[in-house]
């Protein structure tokens, strides 16, 4: 199979999540092929005539009959994608990239820290660890977004919040009338979360600056660099190591990442213009 050729998928369902985020559910245009992927992997999605962009898979890795992506509208291609309707076709290449350390975290406390659209790739981890809840210690899900209207997967989060075996915290940058939850950046939630720093795996996805402060907060509470994982973002044209665009020092984010242990990229992380 030629990795540069997209496969047509049909949109089965579109869901508007917030004013600028939407979720599409896709099924293969032909055949019944299953789409198996690991939590944290992404696809290159092609919108007819407009272009192709890397988007993480946000669905349940154990449900391989439907492919789910959650996208924020920011520019040309994502805007075109947001206009598609049920029955339209999207070209799919993937799944590509590394996965979150879901298996490696077994037996540990888990801290999931998401900023904005970063919750989409981390939702796959939530599905995975809840399926085997008893294999993990304490689980904290810390999520920060701009305003209460921007909260993604609101229903699901509410359900999770009501569970006694999870610590789910949501914070917003700017509160609105009627919001009586946390206000402030997501890093303020870290010191309040309960976990054993000697035995915790943290997974972070969000803007680089947010990841940077989250890492320093986690390290302050005693986590070591090899137990902190983050998902990196760079320009991507191929997704398979040919185009060179996603290089980050020695790493190709498309094939060595997007998920890295902080230990692996520590020497680069936060350095300007790398």
């Amino acid at each position: 199979m030629n990795p540069m050729i997209p496969n047509p998928y049909i949109i089965q369902k579109v869901k508007k999540e917030t004013q600028d985020v939407f979720t599409v559910e896709l099924i293969p245009a032909e055949g019944e092929q299953k789409f198996s992927f690991g939590a944290g992997q992404f696809n290159m999605l092609y919108i007819f005539g407009t272009g192709e962009v890397p988007i993480s898979i946000s669905g349940d890795p154990n449900k391989s009959d439907v492919l789910i992506h959650t996208t924020r509208t920011v520019g040309t291609v994502t805007k075109a994608m947001s206009k598609l309707k049920t029955g339209d076709t999207i070209g799919v290449r993937g799944p590509y990239g590394s996965t979150w350390p879901v298996k490696e975290a077994i037996g540990n406390d888990v801290v999931i820290i998401a900023g904005g659209i970063g919750l989409a790739p981390l939702r796959t981890v939530i599905y995975e660890i809840l399926r085997e809840r008893e294999s993990y210690g304490r689980i904290a899900i810390l999520y920060g977004t701009r305003t209460p209207e921007d909260i993604l997967f609101k229903r699901e989060l509410e359900k999770l919040k009501s569970r006694l075996d999870l610590d789910v915290q949501v914070t917003v940058d700017r509160a609105a009338r009627g919001w009586n939850g946390n206000v402030g950046v997501v890093t303020t939630l870290i010191p309040r979360a309960r976990f054993d720093p000697k035995n915790t795996t943290a997974m972070i996805c969000g803007p680089e600056i947010m990841m940077k402060y989250s890492i320093s907060e986690l390290m302050k509470s005693g986590l070591s660099a090899e137990k902190i994982f983050l998902s990196m973002e760079r320009n991507m044209k191929c997704g398979v190591g040919f185009c060179g665009h996603c290089q980050y020092g020695p790493e190709f984010i498309c094939k060595d990442g997007p998920v890295f242990s902080y230990k692996k990229i520590k020497h680069l992380f936060g350095k300007r213009e790398i």
């Binding site: 092609y46 005539g49 407009t50 272009g51 192709e52 044209k237 191929c238 040919f242 185009c243 060179g244 665009h245």
Partner: peptide, 8 residues
Amino acid sequence: FCTTIEDT
């Protein structure tokens, strides 16, 4: 070896 793509 770097390349880009152009969709038209």
